[in-house]
Amino acid sequence: MSFASFADFIAMGGHGPYVWLSYGISAVVLGLNVLLPVLAHRRYIADEARRIRREEAAQ
């Protein structure tokens, strides 16, 4: 451990805002990279299932 207390860890020796800003934004970008394909996959499956049901009903 290189920090004595949790408050020290948050402050990062005065560089806290910079460190947390860059980690935060990176986490958001990485999270979006995961979230968007997952949502797109779900939406696609739902749309396709609806299309298949419609086609079966039409027959």
Binding site: M12, G13, G14, H15, G16, Y18, V19, S22, Y23, S26
Partner: peptide, 10 residues
């Protein structure tokens, strides 16, 4: 100091 910790994502 501690700002170098950004290296771990940069």
């Amino acid at each position: 100091g501690n700002s170098f910790r950004i290296i771990y994502i940069h």
